[in-house]
Design a protein around this nucleic acid. Sequence first.
RNA 1: GCCGGAGUGGCGGAACGGUAUACGCGGCGGUCUCAAACACCGCUGGCCGAAAGGUCUUGUGGGUUCGAAUCCCACCUCCGGUACCA
Length: 867
Amino acid sequence: MPHQAADWAAEVHEVHTVTTTGEARDRIERYNPTAIEPKWQERWADLRLYDTDLYDDSRPPFYLLTMYPYPSGALHIGHWYITTPTDAIARYRRMHGDNVFLPIGFDAFGLPAENAAIKNKINPRAWTSANMENMRRQLRTMGSTFAWRHEVVTCDPAYYRWNQWMFVKFLEKGLAYRSVSPVDWCPNDGTLAREQVEGVERRCWRCGAQVEKRELAQWYLRITDYADELLDFTGLDWPEPIRSMQTNWIGRSSGAEVDFESAPMLHHAGGEPIRVFTTRPDTLFGATFMVLAPEHALVSPLTAPDRRAEVEAYVAAAANKTEINRLSTDREKTGVPIGADAINPVNGERIPIFVADYVLGGYGTGAIMAVPAHDERDFAFAKAFDLPIIKVVMPRDGDPDEELTQAFTAHTIDEVMVNSGSFTGRPAAQAWHEIVSSLGDQGKGEQAVTFRLRDWLISRQRYWGTPIPVIHCTDCGPVGVPEADLPVLLPDEVDYRGSGDNPLTRDEAFLACSCPQCGKPARRETDTMDTFIDSSWYWFRYLSPHKNDGPVDSDLVRRWTPVNQYTGGAEHAVMHLLYSRFFTKAMRDLGLVHENEPFTKLFNQGQILGADGERMSKSRGNVQDPDELVSRYGADAVRLFLMFMGPWDQGGPWSPTGIGGVAKFLGRVWTLALDPHGREPADPLSGQLPAGETDALARDRIRAAAHRTLRDVSVDYEGFRWNTMVAKLMELSNTLARYRGSEVAGLPEWDEAIRMLLLMLAPAAPHITEELWSRLAEARGESWTSIHTEEWPRVDETAIVEATREVPIQINGKLRDKITVPAGITDIELEQIVRSRDKVVAAIGGAEIAKLIVVSGGKLVNIVLRG
RNA sequence: GCCGGAGUGGCGGAACGGUAUACGCGGCGGUCUCAAACACCGCUGGCCGAAAGGUCUUGUGGGUUCGAAUCCCACCUCCGGUACCA
């Protein structure tokens, strides 16, 4: 919505250049960020201040990684929201003596480049390169301390050849394999992504054609081999919600696989066995029907002739439904009987077989035994189709004949079996195992584990990605490209026909090759890799981006990884962050790296949405361009405002309201540092100490304020609580402003407080603090050293100690009074004072005190009255 | 649907189970100015009250507790992910 963007722009235009205050205008130069910022950015670059020496052993290494951007064209404010606080972490860690490595690069393969190529008839590489150039320029305006010499660009053959190299290793190890699976297919544009299929009609976003499912042979990585290891988060300092999402995504289920004999003809058993997976073998006696997924291989062979037409129609309809739709639990259950039965192996009973789309082909065995009494979806299906519901598990004191109104799924320890033949009366938890082992003895089943996680489909029928290094030979089948022949280069000039299908399939020069095994003419694989492959190991490559005899430098990997701190969006919770963990483990098993996990500590910042509350995107027209804000307010103000807006992990709709307040704060810091003796002509009390305050008291209060702020701000920095960090620095500057122009301004306590304020602000607002630091040094006749090489100040606890404190008094939990008491008072003394207060006595009246609670250390007193 | 998160003044938000609304924006009043802008100072959750003060208030409804924005249960709304966007 372009008009909304215009609204706030108008608002911004009304705010004018930041100036300093009052008569200071005549005494000192104004704070002008546009003059200061480029100067320091250049100076820092010249000094190679942030050019990390990866071999420096004198300081502890700190690998700080932030998710690299996709080169979409221009930075938006969301990039700043991720990146500038991360830069503040880097600067903060350096002030604590760490050797910080903060690299940056570009996730340069992917669909948007191809969409742009099709739409604008421009080469994806040219489009991507131009975007990267623009974004590099923008990134530099942040004043961020990236190690640019280590930049990684994934569409560079020097990078993607190692994707190919690792793929071939995975192929040799059996970790990569080929299998057939369905894709959403448009006759004009080929394979489509989920968001390219529009509406319930399922039409192609580009050409409007009807989208269908097509079965394609595609490449997979066996991430499921690592499923159990991926469930183990030992030693990782990751947010609980992310661990929980990954755990649920992997979805480990422990149960049994059981064979049901199929009985295609009436009164005849002896058909092929149908294997089902169940987490509840204890409910086998309650199975009253069976359900096959529409994709199940036995649907067609088992369907009775008179059922065939209906079953085939149902299967075809299911193919055009989305998985989200099929798994919906509040949707009306659908399905059709196929006209065949299955034999329950525990009691020999015949149960009808249905095909229904709530069972998925890709999960478990693609077939379930349905136990309506103890599964919600089976219950709903049984009700819809009027199938028997047999209760086989119940609470110990339950009634076996009571009719169920909903599925009983509690599955507690104290449950017993009913209606279950010889197992009736057994505790359900034990019967679970007894039934499995009994089936095992008969060769009809065994204990099994299944995962919701599926193997990683890495094939993309697209041009702009890493070519999968495989050659198809009519004799030898698919063969990996030998290491010596890598990289398989992506041709730059291809024939785009203005549609989304893969031009590599028409590129004869690319396709023609010979089989590495037998030498016969062969065809090259045209699928390229999922771009998540690129992002699954890029941080290893940052350490040695130009190394040309291997993907990683093992010496540097040993020194620098795992990454100490990773920052990026929570939208990557289950895909990128899981693939990266998998890749690290797979690379470990290739002997490339030594560790089990890629990122020791993770922080997910929230997402900045457009002003309309929607995700920022060019097509919605709700993208906020940071350049305009930077030219108006300066990079420091934009950085600080993004930190001040709210908790970093929250994000939210973008609104520039309030950036003026942050700019005003920086102007105030400028004035405090450069003009401590100036006064506010508009304030009659300016230059006087607050009423009743002596010199000595004022000096103590300045020190106390500075050191208390340091104590609290340090905690906020450690926890990335930027908004409260900035608020506390604002409070400190407000306190100092009250003393500006008075007799204590410029005294050692004042100077210390100013110095501390600048140091505390330096990681967040690096330019203004550097400028003020240099001017203060100059005023003292000292030579310049960067504030960003200074040490973080130390708290003097003795400065913070207070003589008195305030204690709130509650009656029945409601605030009724406040008293000021000496800091060292005992609880008993406190209680005596409280009881003698007029207000307290009046509030109690004639009531009886039931209890008097003094909260830990006398922080609060609550008087509870009886009745 | 499922998995994860969030809901507090006019707005962004603050608050180890213990004084709800810090800090900032906006608004109102003032100072400075020929005037304006900038800057600076003061006030600013609702209701009752002249005031002192009282009372209500953290999406909704319950619960636990001396005490709940915070913990528990149910629900509503919004955001992220849902395997080919990155």
